[in-house]
Amino acid sequence: MSPLRLLTLPGDGIGPEITEATVRILHAAAPLLSRELSISRAEIGFPALKAEGTTIPEAVTAAAQKADGVILGPVSHNAYPPVAEGGLNPSGVLRKALELYANIRPARSYDGLPPPTGQAFDLIVARENLEGFYADRNMAQGGGEFMPEPGVALAMRKITEAGSRRIAEAAFKVAQGRTKKHVTAIHKANVMRMSDGLFLDVARDVARGFPDVDYDELLVDAAAAHLVRHPQKFDVLLCTNMFGDILSDLASELSGGLGLAGSLNLGAVHAVAQAQHGSAPDIAGQDRANPTSLILSSAMLLRHLGETRAATAIEAAVTRAIAAEKTRTSDLGGALGTQAYTDILCCYLEESKP
């Protein structure tokens, strides 16, 4: 059997630290895999810009296309030079090159970290990944922002039937494997009647093909309020790009913070695990970063690739560590740094070996 080939792209800021921690966890979980693990590395972000004049060289994209899965660290794209000078957003480039149309973002409460509402919850945001207001900035390709005259800025929102159908089907398939089996489509069709109207028309059509999954709809502003008040009522939130980006951050904060937020970008062929948070350059190199987001994202990637046993063990190790203050990182009220926290997780994984 061919090895499981994973490509790591550490990125900027705390990216190299949390990627190193994630690689350690993957090696610790390797005995639970069904095949040999092979992990390679390539540079993106500022290291790549300095070495090759671009934040994501074409060779990196080609390597990502050949790998079984990619582990993408955070990048500092807001600090990059203009695109013409090589300052591309690596995340955006990979999403388009690999056709990663779905961004799956779980959020749940943990023992030891009581949710603000006092109610335990477990939900998933299924976010469309290629359209909406975040579409390609080239106007010829149907998206982005432009200024027709000084002092006037316009934004184009691209919603297609095909794109809406892909993310809707992904959301319903996720819901089928869960206990509640419930999808809530998030929209603002009372204002954006054409774009969100199209999105809802497609969602309703897809819902008819999943009679075992309950379906309803909710305005995005109401969804934000309901998430804060009673997140336990949600199961899978089906969202367009921007709404999914915002609501998933809100849900993650309710679970304990973005440091716990796993994220998996999916396409028909490729998959990229990605930390949901930013590169946090202010704490880079200080052994203070919480690597859980990227670790859980990598567990999601393993599960997607059929390695359920290893994924479950990693998730269980994280849950166990978070449950006690003495085994948490400082952002969660503990005293552990990146390395010591990773050591704890590796010990827990060692105990789970057959």
Rank of each mutant, 00 (worst) to 15 (best):
L49G: 05
G257F: 14
A203Y: 02
P115Q: 05
G197L: 10
A321R: 00
K158M: 13
N129F: 01
L237N: 03
S255D: 01
K66Q: 13
A324Q: 14
A140K: 15
E325L: 01
Y134Q: 01
P115V: 05
E52V: 00
S109Q: 02
G45W: 06
I186S: 12
A171K: 13
P211T: 03
A126G: 05
G73T: 14
H270N: 13
V228K: 00
L258Y: 09
V60L: 15
Y134V: 08
R127C: 02
T312Q: 14
K188E: 06
R137C: 10
G306T: 10
D331Y: 08
R166V: 05
G259K: 05
G132S: 00
E350F: 00
D214G: 11
G45S: 08
F146V: 03
A324T: 11
S352C: 15
D235Y: 03
D111M: 04
G333D: 07
R328F: 01
L247G: 03
L302F: 01
T184Y: 02
G257L: 06
V272G: 07
L7F: 01
K180P: 01
L301G: 09
A168M: 09
M242T: 12
A120R: 15
F46V: 09
S352I: 03
I124L: 08
A284Y: 11
L4T: 13
L37K: 06
I71G: 15
L218A: 12
L37G: 07
A335M: 05
K326W: 06
G163Y: 14
F210V: 06
E58A: 13
R208P: 09
S91I: 14
L301T: 04
A261C: 12
R24H: 09
S293L: 02
D212A: 11
D68I: 02
S279I: 07
L37W: 01
V75G: 02
R137F: 14
E253L: 14
P291S: 04
K181R: 14
A28W: 05
A42K: 14
L294N: 04
I104P: 06
P106W: 01
T308V: 09
A324R: 10
K353A: 09
D12L: 13
I44H: 04
L250H: 11
G144V: 09
Q276E: 12
A207K: 04
P114L: 12
G259A: 11
